Each structure stands twice: as C-alpha cells, then as structure tokens.
Amino acid sequence: MDLTDEEIAAMTPAERRDLILRLAPRPPGMPSRRAFDRIRKFRTALMLVCVAALIPWTVYLAITLPSHYVARNWVATWVGFDILLVAMLTLTALAGWKRKQFVFPAAFASGVLLICDAWFDVMTSQRGGDLTQALLSACLVEVPLAFLLIAGPLRLLRYVAVRHGMIHPKSGLWRMPIPIPDLYPDRKVPPRA
C-alpha cells in the first residue's frame, strides 16, 4: 500500500506516530521501557539528593568563606577554562556545520560555560576598568551568545519533535516528553503483508 503525501498530511499525530513505529523497528540493544523507567527514577532521585546536600553546603560556604582569598594556579585556572570553552565552541560549530544532533548538548554546554565565564569574570574583577570591561563583555557578548547557544538548539529540538509528530505544534518545551519509551514501546509490530 502506497500512501500519498496528502494522506500522510491528513493523519493525526497519533496516526503518524503509529506509522513511524511500524516503519522503524525497535533498534537492537535498546533497553526496555521498564529499564528506562528505572534509570529515570534513579537519576531523578540522585539529582534530588544532590540538591538536598548542596543547600546546606552553600549556606556553610556563605558563612565560613573569607571575603578575600589569594588563589593559587590563577593563570592555569582561567587559561584552562578558556581552553575548555574554545573546545566546546569548536565542537558546537562542527556539529552545526555537519548538521549532527551532537549540536544540542554541545551548544547547551557552551552556553552554560559562557554564563559561568561571565559570572566569574564579573565577580572576580577589581573595581574600575577591570569591572567595567567584565560587565561590558558579559552584557554585550557572553550572555547574548549563551542565550543563542541554549535557546537555538532547544527550539530546533522542539521543531524536530513537532515534525516527527511526537508533540502538538502548540506544545511548549516544558511539556515535551522524552520520546524513547513512547516511540519504542514493548510491543510486537505486526508483520507487513
């Protein structure tokens, strides 16, 4: 049976999803839905434990850290951070150029690193020219670029999900489910006639 473009366009998202499931068999080695659920629950619990531990640790640091501190390896710290930032931006550019899905995590990580760079530049700068330069760099370059690097791939990820019928076109990113268990449920696909 051949489907025309018009027949596919007339399908509901659920019908398209079902068609995708029937055309794309479950990849070998993919964990079961039950395994995905266990992994998700474990990782969620781990993140909540980390949050619970980080709150008192942050309060402790706020009370005990000195307001002035001379750091060792200052140059190596900043140069190493900038090397990491250059590497991540390069990976992002390559993934984007080659249209690879690796652009999603690479761009997101690059954006987060730029926000961290802006924060630490501003917070560790001396008052006067250093602080002014750090603020200008943060406001005019680092934060806007970070926004593009984080928001762009998230929007593209949403577009891919809409295009493949995984979510409704009016759904927001926060409503987009992780598609793997839904795309490859534990069921037998009837053989094609």
Rank of each mutant, 00 (worst) to 15 (best):
residue 2 D to N: 14
residue 2 D to P: 09
residue 3 L to Q: 03
residue 5 D to C: 08
residue 8 I to Y: 13
residue 10 A to M: 09
residue 12 T to K: 05
residue 15 E to W: 05
residue 17 R to P: 01
residue 18 D to P: 01
residue 19 L to F: 06
residue 20 I to A: 07
residue 22 R to G: 05
residue 27 P to Q: 12
residue 27 P to T: 14
residue 28 P to T: 13
residue 30 M to I: 11
residue 32 S to H: 06
residue 32 S to N: 08
residue 37 D to A: 14
residue 38 R to T: 11
residue 41 K to L: 13
residue 42 F to I: 02
residue 44 T to R: 08
residue 44 T to V: 05
residue 47 M to K: 10
residue 48 L to D: 07
residue 48 L to M: 11
residue 51 V to M: 13
residue 53 A to M: 07
residue 53 A to R: 03
residue 55 I to L: 11
residue 57 W to E: 10
residue 58 T to Q: 03
residue 60 Y to I: 01
residue 61 L to A: 09
residue 68 H to S: 15
residue 69 Y to A: 07
residue 70 V to W: 04
residue 73 N to L: 11
residue 74 W to D: 09
residue 76 A to K: 11
residue 88 M to F: 00
residue 89 L to P: 00
residue 91 L to Q: 06
residue 91 L to F: 09
residue 94 L to R: 15
residue 99 R to Q: 11
residue 100 K to E: 12
residue 101 Q to S: 11
residue 103 V to P: 00
residue 106 A to H: 06
residue 106 A to G: 01
residue 109 A to V: 02
residue 109 A to L: 06
residue 111 G to E: 07
residue 113 L to F: 02
residue 114 L to P: 00
residue 116 C to A: 14
residue 116 C to H: 08
residue 118 A to K: 02
residue 119 W to N: 02
residue 125 S to I: 08
residue 125 S to H: 03
residue 127 R to F: 07
residue 128 G to E: 09
residue 131 L to T: 10
residue 132 T to Q: 15
residue 134 A to Y: 01
residue 134 A to Q: 01
residue 136 L to S: 12
residue 137 S to A: 13
residue 139 C to G: 08
residue 140 L to G: 05
residue 141 V to L: 09
residue 143 V to N: 03
residue 146 A to G: 00
residue 148 L to K: 03
residue 152 G to Q: 03
residue 153 P to S: 12
residue 154 L to C: 15
residue 155 R to P: 13
residue 157 L to R: 14
residue 158 R to A: 04
residue 159 Y to N: 10
residue 160 V to Y: 15
residue 160 V to S: 10
residue 162 V to R: 05
residue 165 G to P: 02
residue 165 G to F: 07
residue 168 H to N: 10
residue 168 H to C: 03
residue 169 P to C: 07
residue 170 K to Y: 09
residue 170 K to Q: 10
residue 171 S to D: 15
residue 172 G to R: 07
residue 173 L to P: 00
residue 176 M to G: 00
residue 177 P to K: 02
residue 177 P to W: 04
residue 180 I to G: 05
residue 180 I to W: 13
residue 180 I to N: 05
residue 182 D to V: 11
residue 182 D to H: 15
residue 183 L to W: 12
residue 183 L to P: 00
residue 183 L to R: 09
residue 184 Y to Q: 06
residue 184 Y to D: 07
residue 188 K to W: 08
residue 188 K to T: 13
residue 189 V to G: 03
residue 190 P to Y: 11
residue 190 P to R: 08
residue 193 A to K: 12
